[in-house]
């Protein structure tokens, strides 16, 4: 990583101006990922003076500042109570404590990592992103954008919806990237997210539609839903696994996860 100039922004506006001054200027999250990259950075903009490292509980949502570290998020107990520890489990599967003390929520979202174990649960929690310039948008919309905006992420909002959850990361060791990850969140309706396909996390829309319109949930319905999932969720191969294996893992954990969160007898 090469940085020509370090700049500690005084206000978000200041950071935003700086960011757009030069195409090779960049925002520093925890800079862990940036360190792995080789593209030279002209001005590295530090947001750490902007108090974006707080988690607030509003009536309709939890507001997670973009500079909140993965450890801070890991310790957000009331959030985990609401989400049946979904985020907590996913965070526990990301590297070690010292690492999580540095990596930020903002960097994890903006990086749009295909292997991300955080984006998948955020998807099923219907997270919204608050950008300084572009304002609020759904995480799904952000992931659909061809190129991420040259904007500053202020926070991630998670609507206060209580539900049951399932999370699974399949990997070679806990410190490895996922071969596949899966998040399921059920309140009135059920949301299912799949990541590291190896493509980036996505909602299993067809499957969700089927389940959310089913009259009752039993094993047959779940099996049918899984079948739909396998047909509609795009999987592929990479260094970590081939497609056929991903499919098998997806099939198994979709079923196990659904049985668990749907509270249905095996």
């Amino acid at each position: 990583m090469q940085i020509t100039e370090y700049y500690k922004a005084a206000t978000v506006e200041d950071a935003y101006q700086r960011l757009n001054l030069d195409s090779s200027n960049a925002i520093l999250g925890g800079a862990l990922w940036l360190k792995q990259t080789s593209k030279p950075i002209q001005t590295a903009i530090d947001l750490s003076a902007l108090k974006l490292n707080v988690i607030k509980q509003e009536s309709a949502y939890f507001e997670i500042g973009s500079m909140v570290t993965l450890s801070q998020l890991y310790d957000a107990d009331s959030l985990h109570q609401m989400t049946d520890n979904l985020l907590k489990e996913s965070l526990a599967s990301i590297m070690g404590v010292a690492f999580r003390n540095m990596a930020t929520v903002g960097g994890s979202v903006i990086g749009r990592f295909a292997f991300s174990d955080l984006i998948t649960p955020l998807l099923v929690l219907q997270a919204e992103l608050v950008f300084y310039h572009q304002g609020q948008m759904r995480l799904t919309a952000f992931l659909d954008q061809k190129k991420p905006p040259k904007d500053i992420l202020i926070s991630v909002r998670i609507p206060t919806i209580k539900g049951r959850a399932f999370f699974k990361k399949v990997s070679n060791t806990v410190l490895d990237f996922s071969i596949l990850n899966l998040a399921i969140f059920k309140h009135e309706s059920v949301l299912i997210g799949v990541g590291a396909r190896p493509g980036i996390g996505t909602l299993a829309q067809a499957m969700m539609d089927y389940l959310n319109h089913a009259d009752k949930i039993d094993e047959t319905v779940i099996n049918e839903a899984v079948e739909i999932g396998l047909q509609t969720i795009q999987l592929s191969h990479n260094q970590r696994a081939q497609k056929a294996y991903r499919k098998q893992v997806l099939k198994t954990y979709l079923k196990r996860g659904l049985i668990e969160v749907m509270n249905c007898e095996h």
Binding site: I3, Y6, L28, G30, A31, L32, K35, A44, D46, S48, S71, V97, A98, F99, N101, M102
Partner: peptide, 13 residues
Amino acid sequence: NQPVLACSLLSVR
């Protein structure tokens, strides 16, 4: 007082 990885922490920060 928090464990962090010195190899990946920019000194200026």
